[in-house]
């Protein structure tokens, strides 16, 4: 294991991971497409996603309307692309919230243990004991039918997974030599936990996070599908699938299929990204 050059920087390491695994590269390209659609989507699309044109309703896909038009004559392509921003925003903020909450709770429980650990574990068990989608429905119904509440509900049902993971990762490192060494170097308990132990839990967290992102998108779309959260006429994949479902029987398949495919594309992207993200944040992958 002799390496003659200095260790590569972060960017060259990312480059190395992407070159080493074509699937990771593909997932990052797909992710880039999603981000472009989210940031620039409303500017790029050919039609106003909310403008209806009754004369042009329920047209099949054509050169003018790539994904066809819906029952109000709105361009499905424009709506699918515009919806990316909302769907990504909901899932990313929900996952970020649950990641932060789960990290803090799990790290505290794993490091100090004792009654704190016992109490936090039982609370997490309680959340996980519910059918999670039903729990999310309940939370949105109780807190009020808004986009923020979808975010909170999704965050709550995801938190236990992170808390469990971080707790286990922190717990096995609590008595490691480098933790004692960090204390000898003058780090207080909180600094040891935050700066020395927690970063070592990041690689498995990345896998969990990317899987959860896909799941959070599905969850948000699912809530909209049953009429909670985002409300028409806002463009959102879940609502579009729900509305389009009524027309599948009469042969207008494009209303539901295209937003459904977009949903699938997003979930697929996040599921593929996990391993690559883990390799990027794990310094042991560097040689």
């Amino acid at each position: 294991m002799s390496v003659t050059t200095a260790s590569p920087g972060t960017f060259s390491h990312i480059g190395y991971v992407l070159r080493g695994n074509p699937v990771t590269l593909l997932s990052f390209v797909m992710f880039a497409i999603l981000i472009i659609a989210a940031v620039l989507g409303p500017v790029l699309v050919p039609y106003d996603p909310l403008a209806s044109e009754a004369a042009n309703a329920l047209q099949p896909p054509s050169w003018a309307h790539w994904f066809g038009t819906d029952n109000l004559g709105r361009d499905v392509f424009s709506r699918v692309v515009t919806a990316t921003r909302l769907d990504l925003m909901i899932s990313i903020s929900a996952v970020t919230l649950s990641l932060m909450a789960g990290s803090v709770l799990g790290a505290v429980a794993g490091y100090w243990g004792g009654w704190l650990d016992a109490v936090l574990n039982r609370v997490m068990d309680t959340i996980m004991a519910f059918p999670l989608f039903v729990l999310a429905m309940g939370i949105v119904a109780a807190l009020g039918n808004t986009v923020e509440n979808i975010v909170y509900a999704t965050a709550v049902i995801n938190t236990p997974f992170y808390a469990r993971l971080v707790r286990a990762e922190v717990n096995i490192r609590r008595e490691a030599g480098f933790v004692h060494a960090a204390k000898l170097a003058g780090n207080s308990d909180i600094r040891v936990l935050a700066m020395h132990i927690f970063p070592n839990a990041l690689p498995p967290m990345m896998v969990q996070m990317s899987l959860n992102l896909g799941w959070a998108i599905l969850n948000a779309a699912g809530l909209s599908f049953i009429g909670l959260g985002v409300r028409p006429p806002t463009a959102e994949w879940g609502i579009m699938v729900a509305e389009g479902a009524n027309f599948i029987v009469s042969g207008e398949w494009w209303l539901a299929v295209f937003p459904g495919l977009a949903l699938m594309f997003a979930v697929f992207t996040f599921n593929l990204m996990g391993d690559g993200l883990r390799d990027i944040v794990d310094p042991r992958q560097r040689t």
Binding site: A176, G177, F178, H180, A181, A182, N200
Partner: peptide, 9 residues
């Protein structure tokens, strides 16, 4: 244990 006493990150 030198390995265990160095933070892998």
């Amino acid at each position: 244990d030198a390995t265990d006493s160095l933070n892998p990150r």
